[in-house]
Amino acid sequence: MEYRKLGRTGWKVSTVSFGAWAIGGTWGPVDDAESMAALHRALDLGVNFFDTADVYGDGRSERLLARLRKERSEPFHVATKAGRRLNPHVAEGYSRENLTAFVERSLRNLGVEALDLLQLHCPPTQVYYMPEVFGVLDDLAAAGKVRFYGVSVEKVEEALKAIEYPGVQSVQIIFNIFRQRPAELLFAETKRRGVGVLARLPLSSGLLAGKLTASSTFAADDHRQFNRGGAGFDRGETFSGLDYSVGLAAVEELRALVPKGHTLAQMAITWIGMHPAVTCSIPGCKRPAHVEENMAAADLPLLTPATMDAIASIYLRHARPLVHARW
């Protein structure tokens, strides 16, 4: 496992880390015993960074990570998020009162005195133009409730605005083979400012795992069923914003590029790691087998220039016309 610096925190985190959305909910049925086994296996394999949110299973994901802290002695970092509990989810809701209440709830769920890393959870674009919100985060850090803070964003433009605030240590953004725009400008700016990058949905909601087909079915509470058109939250969170059939067609072309000894998922994660501005990818893991496959990507050889060029061509033909300008 390789470790990279996360912003100016002084932390070095595993380049392939653990996304804990799936063990909370909206990815179909979950089993806490299986989730805990996956978390333990991640620690066994050198993972030291876990990403969650207060709304993942209404705190279920955070509470599982609290259990992990009690059951293991190894130190690790937990990033959580706040904001999506608002109903309606509007910029005005990002007030001192609400953010403080969200932080206190996450502190209880995680069983800690200070949150390692708090991220605004894909707030409305207007929030990035409200310096008072980032002032509240500064105050929470000064009060010892939050060690560091960052943002989780939908759009490159939001990330570029967010990193103008000096306290922002990290940007979490969708970055994968089907969503390549962050590499154009954002990564140069995050490197210049010393801001970490967390690449979420590295497997494009499972498309890049290579196991989905046109006949695959999803549970009613799985966002891959209910959010394809953006009914629950931003459409870009599901299959990277691609129509399912378009994604499947691109995956078929990608299969031919998978190096010997790799799986498609491992190639997709390796591709992300070849961008030095990315601190880590955070693939979702529900089972120990998922953990083992994903984490093995950290130790596999780099992709060849020819493979990288071929991946770029597939993006240009299949995904770029649909997603590049939007996010």
Rank of each mutant, 00 (worst) to 15 (best):
A101M: 02
F102W: 03
R105W: 14
L107C: 00
L107M: 01
L110W: 00
G111K: 00
E113G: 05
A114N: 03
L115S: 01
D116W: 01
L120D: 02
H121D: 06
H121C: 06
C122N: 13
C122F: 08
T125W: 05
T125V: 03
T125N: 04
P131G: 03
E132H: 08
G135F: 04
A143W: 11
V146N: 03
V146G: 03
R147C: 09
G150V: 14
E154H: 09
E154T: 10
K155I: 08
E158Y: 08
A162Q: 11
A162P: 06
A162S: 11
I163N: 15
V168N: 10
V168T: 09
V171Q: 01
N176T: 05
R179M: 12
E184N: 09
A188N: 12
E189G: 12
T190R: 02
K191M: 15
R192T: 14
G194H: 02
V195R: 01
G206H: 11
L208T: 09
A209M: 10
G210C: 02
A214R: 04
F218K: 05
D221S: 10
D221L: 06
R224E: 01
Q225C: 14
Q225F: 15
F226T: 12
R228V: 00
G232E: 13
F233Q: 13
S240F: 05
S240A: 01
